[in-house]
């Protein structure tokens, strides 16, 4: 083996560079409205009446906001140690005894390490376990060991499993009681720490299984999930300056997909459909929507994807990486503008 096995040469010395750990506890930008630990607070609150709710974690209570629940209900909190597989098996056991476990870890470790345990001990039996995972997609700069760029691709193949990807603190708070009320296993992608607030401004209410049009526009429709909806709304606003009207359809439930809403919105004539997701271009919301449209003979004016490339991503500061891989608001705005510009040019 030679040196060119390394990804990059030794860097030239430079002044200040962005650091990886700077945004470790929050995805929020400096001026953004946020709310702390929405999942932990919502679960602790719900558990006051739902005495069947228990919390289990694999040495990541503090890093998934489950510590808030643990402080409020210590007798219903089980620290399983850094052992994701037994945490999932034990959650299955608790569910068999009538409890409703919320099991937390990072998305990489649930999807990659504990997959078989979730599939066989939980999903095949359709047990009421809610697997709630921080650091979905590209929400840490630590590199591939912590970047769950393919968690949805992995979990979409699992029968019985409901998958949700909430956008902000407002939606997480509403999703917690909704997934607790749902019968069957759920995988929820979690934003932790100081979580941005956005959808409250639109009078939005989360409904499990429902996609919702947050904003309308005749030139293009962005179909998005997770925090990419927040960015899609920002991009749509920015594109008004270019006299482009871009709609945003928020799809927090990745599985089962709200087919009716997607077909209705994507089927409107003359609009480009762009699916935007914090996930690999392989196997996520984009491919799910594409497959649905093809199966249903619905042909939008054009179809594009904003997603992470099919590769192990770099380590670095989050803003740098979001820009590099095209999921920052600015990168997204540029691409949508270019795509719409190309189409307009081709049409004349």
């Amino acid at each position: 083996m030679t040196r060119d096995k390394y990804r990059r040469p030794a860097p030239a010395p430079a002044g200040s560079r962005l650091t990886t750990s700077a945004m470790i506890a929050s995805l929020a930008g400096p001026d953004q409205r946020t709310r702390p630990a929405p999942f932990g607070h919502a679960l602790a609150e719900l558990a006051r009446e739902r005495t069947d709710i228990v919390g289990v974690t694999a040495d990541l209570a503090k890093y998934t906001d489950l510590h808030i629940f643990a402080q409020a209900h210590p007798e219903r909190f089980f620290q399983m140690g850094m052992a994701e597989q037994v945490m999932i098996s034990a959650a299955a056991g608790l569910a068999r005894e009538g409890f409703t476990p919320f099991a937390t870890t990072y998305a990489v470790f649930a999807s990659r390490r504990a997959y078989d345990f979730i599939a066989m001990a939980i999903a095949e039996e359709n047990l009421d376990v809610k697997v709630v995972c921080a650091l979905p997609g590209l929400t840490t700069g630590y590199g591939p060991s912590h970047q769950a760029t393919e968690d949805i691709a992995i979990f979409r193949g699992m029968p019985n499993l409901t998958i949700i990807d909430p956008c902000d603190a407002h939606e997480i708070e509403q999703a917690v009681p909704a997934i607790a009320a749902h019968r069957g296993p759920v995988y929820m992608r979690l934003l932790r720490g100081n979580v941005p607030l956005c959808l409250d401004e639109y009078g939005y209410r989360f409904e499990l299984g429902k996609a919702q049009l947050i904003r309308d526009g005749q030139d293009a429709l962005i179909v998005s999930s997770g925090f990419m909806t927040m960015r899609a709304l920002e991009a749509a606003e920015a594109l008004r300056a270019d006299k482009l009207e871009v709609g945003v359809l928020h799809v927090p439930t990745i599985k089962p997909l709200d087919e009716a809403a997607i077909l209705r919105e994507a089927g409107r004539t003359g609009r480009m459909v762009i699916v935007a997701e914090n996930h690999s271009i392989v196997g996520g919301l984009g491919e799910a929507v594409a497959g649905l449209l093809m199966r249903s003979d619905v042909r939008p004016a054009a179809f594009r994807q904003i997603a992470l490339p099919d590769m192990f991503l770099d380590a670095g500061a989050l803003p740098t990486l979001h820009d590099r891989y095209g999921i920052s608001t600015e990168a997204m705005t540029r691409r949508v503008r270019d795509w719409l510009g190309e189409r307009a040019a081709a049409a004349t």
Binding site: P11, R17, L18, T20, Y142, G143, A315, G316
Partner: peptide, 10 residues
């Protein structure tokens, strides 16, 4: 642990 370093945090 800075951008484009050979010394990532992990």
């Amino acid at each position: 642990g800075t951008d484009d370093s050979r010394l990532p945090m992990s």
